[in-house]
């Protein structure tokens, strides 16, 4: 039982990524697909934070209440999640701008109707 609980957060992270993938695959709207990609990336935040967690650990910000010896959670993965979020925002904005251009030029955002290549 403890073995299952020990890996439960990783399973949640994996499930979020896979749900996002399913969303992209069955999407009938490009905006929906972009949001699903964001869901996928959210799974990586959960995964990173789960890797760095420690029972009883506090936020890695030292001061009057948190001293050198106090157990803290891993700040390295938190910094990586921040990087992840920034990159995700950059990717999402680029993709949404592409969707706007596609909607203007082709009059649809349904990927199934965007089969043929047009110049």
């Amino acid at each position: 039982m403890t073995a299952v609980l020990g890996y439960y957060p990783y399973a949640v992270a994996g499930a979020i990524v896979l749900l996002g993938l399913v969303g992209i695959a069955i999407s009938r709207d490009l905006v929906h697909a972009v949001v699903c990609l964001s869901v996928c990336q959210s799974g990586t935040y959960v995964f990173l934070l789960a890797v760095g967690f420690q029972y009883g650990g506090v936020a890695p910000i030292f001061g009057s209440t948190v001293h050198r010896g106090t157990p803290v959670v891993d700040p390295v993965v938190q910094a990586l999640s921040l990087t992840d979020i920034v990159v995700s925002a950059a990717v999402t904005s680029m993709l949404l701008a592409l969707v706007i251009q596609i909607a203007k030029r082709r009059g649809t955002v349904d990927p199934d109707e965007l089969r043929s290549l047009k110049g």
Binding site: Y7, F62, R68, P75
Partner: peptide, 24 residues
């Protein structure tokens, strides 16, 4: 991949120890 990871919430965080020392 996940089965090779240390279990959730453990005490072993080598990067944490190095980063905290460098930060202080």
């Amino acid at each position: 991949g996940v089965s090779g990871l240390p279990a959730f919430g453990g005490h072993h965080h080598p990067y944490r120890d190095l980063a905290v020392a460098a930060s202080l």
